[in-house]
Design a protein around this nucleic acid. Structure first.
Length: 581
RNA sequence: GCGCCCGUAGCUCAGUUGGAUAGAGCACCCGCCUUCUAAGCGGAUGGUCGCUGGUUCGAAUCCAGCCGGGCGCGCCA
C-alpha cells in the first residue's frame, strides 16, 4: 500500500467515525510543501452536502484520526486537512521500497490483457519525425503497463496494402535500380514512388497504369504479388534497424494485408445483422452519435432518418477501406489474443474514425476497453502540419543521428577521458534518450513546431539531466572501497534535502498508476524531473562519502534507492542510463 | 454549417481532474568547482492564465457566449 493509500484509509476511518457512514475522502500530495506533505479537501465537500461547518467537521475528523507511525495532521483555511509526515515515517517507507522489486508500484493491471497498437508506418516509405510520437509514446505505455502487471501485446499494424502499391509496382517495373535497392532499400523505394507520383500528375495515363497494377495485385497476380512481398520484406528490414536503435520491439507485425481474407465476410456479416446498409452503392455503418442539423451541407439524410457521417466499409466498386480492416483487426485481437483492452496510439485527426470504429464494434457485440490515445500534430516551421506526402520532411534517422552527434560533441568537451566505443555507446544512450524525453515530457495532445534545438537539447529539463543524476550516484559507488550492504543500512533523515529526496522516492508508486489513468507518460517524466532535481540538490548539500557514520551509510542507502528509482523510471520511458557520461 | 483540440512569463511548456501566494526549462542578471562528475547547485527578474459573463466557501481548471489558431466531416490511409 502506498503512503497515499495508507493516509486515505486512515482518513476514511476517521470520517466514518465522525459521520457514522462510509464516505470517499481522497488525499492528494500537498500543492505547497508549506502546507505539509499531503492534503485532503474532503471535509469541505462533505460539509457542504450536509450543510454543516467545514472547519468544524474537519476538526471532528482530525480528533478521531489515527496517524500513529505516520505523522501529524492539522486544519487550515476553510477546512483543508494537511498531513505532515515525520522523517522517521519517510525513512521506514523508503527502507521498505528498497526491499521491494516493484519499488512500491502496485500491480493494478493484474489479470488484464491489453493490445497496444502503435507506430504503424507505411511500408516503402521512410519514417519521418511525424512517426516519432506514436512510436515513443506507445512503447512507453507498453513498458509501463507491463510493469503494472498487465499482459501486454504490442502490434505494429503496418500499412502494407494501401493504394500506394499501384505506383510502387509501376515504378518497380520501369524505374528500379537493383543496386540502389540493395544498398538502401527504403531510399530506393521512396525514389521510385516519388518519381511515379510526379509522373501521374503530369500524365493521367500513368495514373491509369498504376491503378491497373493495383487491381492486378488485388486480384492475386503472381508477378505483382512477388514484387509486393519483396517490397514489404525490405521495408521491414529497414524499419527494424530504426526500432533496434530506438530500443522498441513488437510482439506482432500484423499489417493490413493480414486481414484481407476476412474483409468480404465481415461486410456480409454487417449487412446480414442490419448493422450496415447500402448507400449510394457503398456499404456504410451509420451511428447516431453525431447528429447534424438541418442546414449542415455535409448532412446525409436517408429515408430512415439516419443523419450522420457513416463509416464506409465497402466502396461502390467493391473495394475495402481501412475502417473495414480496423474492424477485422479489432475482432482478431479479441478472439485470438483475448484482449480486454485495445489502445490505439494514433494522431488526433483520426478521432472521428475511431469513434465510428468503437461505436460499430459495440453494436457488433465486441466488448472491451477500446481507447484512442490521441496525440497532437508536429508542425513545420510555418506552423502548418507536416505532410507525409510532400516527402521533404525531416527523416527520423536524421534526427537520431544528429542527436547522437550532438551528444558525442558534449561528451568530448565535458568528459574527454571517455573515448572509443565507450564514448560512442554513451553518446547513443544520451542522444536517443534526449529525443525520447523531449517527446514524453509534454502532454500528448499538445501540437508543437518541430525544432532541432528543442528536440535535441541536452541541458535543463532533459534526459541527460536525469541520466546525470544517475551517473553521479554511480560515481559515488565506484569510489566506495569497502563493500556496502544496502539492506543492512539504517536510514536517518535529518537534512531537508534528504527528507525531500525520500518524500519523492516514496511517491513513485503513487505516480505510476496515474500515468495509465489517462495514458500520459508525461506525468512520469515530470515526476522524474522533480526527483532528479531533489537528488541534485541533495548531492550539493549533503556529502556522502565524507560524512560520518551512521549518516554515511544512511546517505549511501538513499543514493542506492534513488539510482534504482531513476533507472527504473527512465527505463519505463524507454530511456537507458549510462554508468558515466 | 457541424464536431473535436488548443490559447498560461520574452520563447518552449507543466499544472495530479475545483484548492491555499499559478510552476519548470531556455534566454538574461548575481553568486558557487583545492570536497563524491559544474550536462550541476543557490539566488534575482519576469503573469490581466485570450476576452466577457455564470456556477460556489474557492475557477487556469466546470458552464455559456465571443475573439484568435489548428484539425476533421462518403467511397485515401
Amino acid at each position: 500500500m502506498t503512503l497515499l493509500q495508507e493516509l486515505e484509509s486512515r482518513l476514511a476511518a476517521a470520517f466514518e467515525a465522525a459521520l457514522g457512514e462510509p464516505v470517499a475522502a481522497p488525499v492528494v500530495p500537498a500543492t505547497d510543501l508549506r502546507f505539509g506533505d499531503y492534503q485532503s479537501n474532503a471535509a469541505m465537500g462533505l460539509a457542504k452536502q450536509r450543510r454543516t461547518n467545514p472547519r468544524a467537521l474537519a476538526e471532528q475528523v482530525v480528533a478521531k484520526l489515527d496517524l500513529s507511525g505516520l505523522g501529524t495532521a492539522d486544519i487550515a483555511g476553510p477546512g483543508f486537512i494537511n498531513f505532515r509526515i515525520s522523517p522517521e515515517a519517510f525513512a521506514v517507507r523508503a527502507k521498505a521500497l528498497a526491499a521491494d522489486p516493484q519499488l512500491g508500484v502496485p500491480k493494478t493491471g493484474e489479470g488484464r490483457t491489453v493490445v497496444i497498437d502503435f507506430s504503424a508506418p507505411n511500408v516503402a516509405k521512410p519514417m519521418h519525425v511525424g512517426h516519432i510520437r506514436s512510436t515513443i509514446i506507445g512503447d512507453s505505455l507498453a513498458r509501463i503497463a507491463r510493469f503494472l502487471g498487465f499482459k501486454v501485446i504490442t502490434d505494429n499494424h503496418i500499412g502494407d496494402w494501401g493504394t500506394q502499391f499501384g505506383m510502387i509496382l509501376h515504378g518497380w517495373k520501369t524505374l528500379l535500380d537493383e543496386q540502389a535497392l540493395a544498398a538502401d532499400p527504403i531510399a530506393e523505394l521512396l525514389r521510385i514512388y516519388r518519381e511515379v507520383n510526379a509522373a501521374t500528375k503530369a500524365d493521367p495515363a500513368v495514373l491509369e497504369t498504376c491503378k491497373g497494377e493495383l487491381v492486378k495485385l488485388q486480384a492475386g497476380d503472381e508477378e505483382n504479388l512477388a514484387i509486393w512481398r519483396r517490397c514489404v520484406e525490405v521495408s521491414k528490414e529497414g524499419l527494424q534497424r530504426i526500432y533496434d536503435r530506438l530500443d522498441v520491439s513488437f510482439d506482432h507485425w500484423l499489417g493490413e494485408s493480414f486481414y484481407n481474407d476476412r474483409l468480404p465476410g465481415l461486410v456480409e456479416e454487417f449487412l446480414g445483422k442490419g448493422l450496415a446498409r447500402v448507400s449510394d452503392d457503398a456499404v456504410c455503418v451509420f451511428s447516431d452519435e453525431t447528429k447534424a442539423p438541418e442546414n449542415d451541407p455535409f448532412k446525409v439524410c436517408r429515408e430512415d432518418g439516419w443523419t450522420d457521417n457513416p463509416a464506409i466499409i465497402r466502396k461502390a466498386d467493391g473495394g475495402f477501406l481501412y475502417a473495414t480492416t480496423d474492424l477485422a483487426t479489432l475482432e482478431y485481437r479479441i478472439d485470438q489474443w483475448g484482449a480486454d483492452e485495445i489502445w490505439y496510439v494514433v494522431g488526433v485527426p483520426q478521432q472521428l474514425h475511431f469513434r465510428q470504429i468503437f461505436d460499430a464494434a459495440a453494436r457488433w457485440g465486441k466488448t472491451g476497453n477500446f481507447r484512442h490515445i490521441a496525440f497532437g500534430s508536429i508542425l513545420g516551421e510555418d506552423r502548418k502540419l507536416m505532410k507525409t506526402r510532400s516527402g521533404d520532411n525531416v527523416g527520423l534517422i536524421e534526427v537520431l543521428e544528429e542527436a547522437v552527434e550532438r551528444a558525442a560533441k558534449v561528451i568530448a568537451e565535458k568528459n574527454p577521458e571517455l573515448v572509443g566505443d565507450e564514448a560512442k555507446e554513451i553518446a547513443e544512450i544520451v542522444g536517443i534518450g534526449a529525443v525520447k524525453f523531449a517527446e514524453l515530457s509534454q502532454h500528448r495532445l499538445t501540437d508543437y513546431v518541430f525544432s532541432w534545438d528543442r528536440m535535441l537539447a541536452l541541458q535543463g529539463d532533459t534526459a541527460p539531466y536525469l541520466q546525470n543524476s544517475f551517473v553521479r550516484i554511480r560515481s559515488i559507488f565506484r569510489k566506495l572501497d569497502e563493500p556496502f550492504d544496502v539492506s543492512a543500512a539504517e536510514l536517518h533523515l535529518s537534512e531537508e534535502a534528504e527528507i525531500h529526496l525520500a518524500r519523492l522516492l516514496v511517491r513513485f508508486g503513487e505516480v505510476l498508476p496515474l500515468v495509465l489513468e489517462d495514458h500520459r507518460p508525461n506525468l512520469l517524466a515530470n515526476y522524474l524531473l522533480e526527483l532528479a532535481r531533489a537528488f541534485h540538490s541533495f548531492y550539493e548539500a549533503c556529502p556522502v562519502l565524507k560524512a560520518d557514520e551512521p549518516v554515511r551509510s544512511s546517505r549511501l542507502a538513499l543514493c542506492d534507492l534513488a539510482s534504482r528509482v531513476l533507472s527504473q523510471g527512465l527505463g519505463l520511458l524507454g530511456i537507458r542510463c549510462p554508468e558515466r557520461m
